[in-house]
């Protein structure tokens, strides 16, 4: 009897990978914007499944929480409120610039694919990143937290400042046209 517990992770991984590819194509190919958004949710959900099958439960949960649960809901809101209609089919004609951009993207994709396939995964710091080592260091959440709040504290804080600035900027831009009511 073959050892299912060794085969199963591979089966799960490749099933997820295949589904993600199909759904990703659907996201781009769907003609109705709401359909695209819903496919995007499914895509992000499956991606979280992929992370979970690689034993990164923390990243998987955060992936669903932030992207599928919050950001795409806002996409959906905007699409519904603007009442966008179905795209009409257009004949595919590329200008030279568009074709060039597409070509560069494809080449970049292939380069990234081959480098990731040939190289070993490396962490952004010292220490091994295999499942047993992470389990010994206190689990996913703790390892991520320790890395974020010690080695990467400055990038982490700067990123949060950047997001805050973007948020304030968005509010200022949205309020630009309103008359400022002087305080009584």
């Amino acid at each position: 009897m073959p050892d299912f517990s060794l085969i199963l992770p591979h089966v799960v991984f490749h099933t997820f990978a295949l589904l993600i590819t199909i759904v990703s194509i659907c996201v781009v190919a769907a003609r109705h914007p709401v359909k695209s958004a819903v496919f995007l949710v499914v895509d992000l959900f499956l991606l979280a499944g992929l992370y979970a099958s690689l034993d990164s439960h923390f990243v998987a949960a955060i992936q669903i929480l932030v992207y599928a649960g919050a950001i795409v809901v806002l996409f959906l809101f905007v699409i519904m409120l603007l009442n966008l209609q179905q795209e009409q089919l257009k004949g595919v004609k590329f200008t030279v610039v568009e074709a060039g951009a597409l070509l560069i993207t494809l080449i970049g994709f292939l380069v990234v694919m081959f480098t990731t396939m040939s190289g070993k995964p490396t962490g952004l710091g010292e220490g091994s990143l295999d499942v047993a080592a992470i389990e010994a260091a206190g689990g996913n959440t703790q390892v991520v937290a320790m890395k974020l709040l010690t080695n990467f504290i400055w990038p982490f804080e700067l990123a949060s400042m950047l997001i805050l600035m973007a948020m304030v900027a968005a509010i200022v831009i949205a309020k630009k046209d309103k008359k400022v009511v002087p305080a009584a």
Partner: peptide
């Protein structure tokens, strides 16, 4: 092992049914 986050993550998907 991240039960809390899992529950929040999945419950945030409940919005889609309604929307």
């Amino acid at each position: 092992d991240v039960g809390f986050l899992f529950i929040f993550a999945v419950s945030s998907l409940a919005v889609y049914g309604v929307t």
